[in-house]
Structure formats: structure tokens, C-alpha cells
Design a protein around this nucleic acid. Structure first.
Lengths: 196, 196
DNA sequence: ACTCGATGTAAGAGAGCTCTCACTTGCTAA
DNA sequence: TTAGCAAGTGAGAGCTCTCTTACATCGAGT
């Protein structure tokens, strides 16, 4: 226990979620571990289990927080993009790249298969809201069936997630791209989806 | 050791690479382990180390094999798509989705950051050849600088990889998509990249 | 002041993984 | 035929991880 901090942490639960983002950003989901999060906060490796019954419930809370923050980021980016519906949807792709390269928590975390069995109403609500926001942005671009709108959302996410994932895996390393470069290219590619 | 098989395997090296694909397809890169590959072949967990100095060198060999097979798959798909250059490049995206959903070994494996330090000329050559094939397909779609061609290849890969990655993470589970559905949608989205 | 519940710790069981080491087996070539 | 070597094996060291258990500490309410 470090001096200057009391025996009790204060808000370890929130701190665990925050530190989880840092671990995800540094190590990726592949090397995410409860132990690493505890180390980062300099608490014992048993401490997290006071707040989450197991690793997957911690990840579920991270997923919920990521869905909420990502939705905010997408909303802001869309508003900044102006009134044109196609611009607004494409801006969502850029926001996705920027958010996920910064935090490490993208759709692969938010919708991770290991969370399917975790009962967590907060997470369900946040992911629903996130999808709802994306569907609204897509629906504004053209009149189409609900199915078509969903397909457009999924295509936009696929573009954004593809760029992000390849960037995280170092695929663009030789070209020395920055996250902003990649985000801009994702915006451009996403835009192409609505003008074909 | 199972009866009917001699003490020596015959070609354990090749079998390890093949079994690695199966482990990747089932568990993903996240849960890939040398031990799991050895178990699948019913050899001792020490046996793989006769053929590969460490886990990363095994993965590097898998990467080389994946790059070679993926290049073949892309070449075949392009030829099947006919003469139109845009169709041929888009077909590569579909081939990518089909190959990677089947084998689990996509660009996240082929260009995995942990392989950057592994000296493996065979892998370097196969990845170079794969990129070369993609660059040729992209170059045929329009006259542009080498840089522009590279951007188009990267965008195409991003689309294909995004769809594949989300599919693998179960994002489309509720829509009950098959890999072929996803591949067709990737082709369509990739096509949009060349007609904007 | 005192108790009690919430939240921390230390210790460790049990599992899986990477990789090593000494030994064994069986093919190949002299 | 037999020596030598490539390629197996079993055992296990050493690491990290998840999660549990028994105990310690602190703050809040009586």
C-alpha cells in the first residue's frame, strides 16, 4: 500500500474500470488480465473480486462504459460534421477509429463473445443505445428498409473497425500513419459506402 | 502415442502448421498455444520445440503459409470474377473473408506485431508476394500514383478485415449470417471504394 | 465508545503455458 | 551389423493467471 493513500481506496470500482481501459490500450484484449489491472492500481490481486464476481463481469462493465463513451464521441463527431447525413455517418467512422485507437476498447470488446453469458443490464442498455444512435445516423442518409439501414451501419462499422484493427496490429507501421491519418481515411472510405 | 502410428511422426513440422490453423480457427489468436497444437496431434508438448525454437517461430511459419494460401485464394477469386478490374479487386475482399473465417489466419496473424522480431525469410517473401498481388489488382482499376494504389489496397483490406473480425467476434450472430453472406457484403462494400 | 459491514490484504490452491533436460527410439549410411 | 543422429518422450522448473479463504482495517451508525 503506498503511503498517502488510506487503506480503503475510495472508489476502487470506478478506478478498476478506468485502469482496465489503460491495460486494454497497452496490451490489447488478448493480454488483458485482472491481475494486470490490480497491479496498475497497486492493490492486491484479490481486491477487484470485491467489486466484480469474475473477470468477465469486469470486462462487461468496461464494455458498458466503452459503449457509452463511444456513443458520446460519435454524437459529437456527427454534430461537428454538419447537416449532411452522409457526412454525419462517415464522421462516426472517424470517431470510432480515434476512440478505439486511444482506448483499445472497440466493438471487439463491447460485443466480445465471452460477454454473451454475462447478465448485465447496464451493458445491454448502453450497447442498445449505441446501436440506436448509429441506426439513426444511417437512416437519415436515405430512405430504405430497416434491413437496409442495418446493413449500412454494419458496413460503416466494418470499415472503421477494419482500419482500427489493422492499425492496432501494426499493419500501417511502415507507412508511419498516425491514428488521425487512419481516421480520415476511414471517413473517406465510409463516405464511399453511401454514394455508390 | 496412438497405435498404428510409429514413434516418429513422419512430417511433424508440416502437421504442426496445419494443426495450428485448426487451433486458430477454433480458439483465435488469443488462445493459440503450442501446447494446444501438440495436444491436437497427440504428441508431447515438447515435440514442437524440435522443429521451432519457440512459439513465435511456429506462428511465423503459420503466417507464411497463410500468406501463400491467401494469395492463391485471392488469385482464383479474381480470375473467377472476370475481366473487370473493379470486380477483380472486390473479389479479393470476398476471398479474404472466406479464407479467414475458415482458417482463422488473417492479416492480424500474418502481420502480427509479435512476429516483427522473428527473422524468417520465407515469411517475408510470402507476405511480399501477397501484397504484390493485391497491388497489381488495385493498380488495374485506375491510373494513379503508387501511393494511391497502396491506399486503395489498404482500404479494401480494411473492409474485408473489418467484416471478418466482427463476424469472428459474433457481432452478426443475431442476424445469423453465414460466412458467405458476409463475404458477399464485403465484396459489395469493397466495390463501392472504386466507384466514388 | 463500540460494533459491524464494507473493503482492503496476504497467502495460496489449482490450472495452463513456455520451454528445458535427460533419456529413448528408430531410420540411415558406413 | 551397428553407430550416429534426428526426432520423439516424460518430468518438471518457473511463470502468470483466476479465484478463494482467513484475517485486517476503517468508517458509519447507534
Amino acid at each position: 500500500m503506498s503511503p498517502g493513500r488510506s487503506y480503503h481506496h475510495g472508489d476502487l470500482r470506478a478506478a478498476l474500470i478506468e485502469a482496465s481501459f489503460e491495460v486494454l490500450a497497452e496490451n490489447g484484449l488478448r493480454r488483458f488480465s485482472v491481475a494486470a489491472v490490480a497491479r496498475r492500481l497497486q492493490v492486491s490481486s484479490a481486491a477487484p473480486y470485491r467489486h466484480f464476481p469474475d473477470r468477465d463481469h469486469l470486462l462487461s462493465a468496461v464494455s458498458a462504459a466503452a459503449a457509452r463513451d463511444l456513443r458520446d464521441a460519435i454524437g459529437s463527431a456527427a454534430d461537428a460534421a454538419g447537416p449532411d447525413p452522409a457526412d454525419r455517418l462517415a464522421a462516426a467512422a472517424g470517431a470510432y477509429v480515434r476512440y478505439v485507437t486511444r482506448t483499445g476498447a472497440g466493438f471487439h470488446v463491447i460485443f466480445a463473445t465471452e460477454l454473451y453469458e454475462v447478465a448485465d443490464d447496464a451493458r445491454r442498455e448502453q450497447t442498445r443505445a449505441l446501436m440506436s444512435t448509429l441506426l439513426d445516423l444511417a437512416a437519415a442518409t436515405h430512405t430504405g428498409s430497416h434491413e437496409d439501414v442495418m446493413l449500412l451501419v454494419e458496413a460503416t462499422i466494418a470499415v472503421a473497425h477494419g482500419y482500427t484493427s489493422l492499425f492496432a496490429d501494426g499493419f500501417f507501421a511502415r507507412n508511419a500513419r498516425t491514428a488521425d491519418d487512419i481516421a480520415n481515411r476511414a471517413v473517406e472510405a465510409a463516405h464511399a459506402l453511401t454514394t455508390d
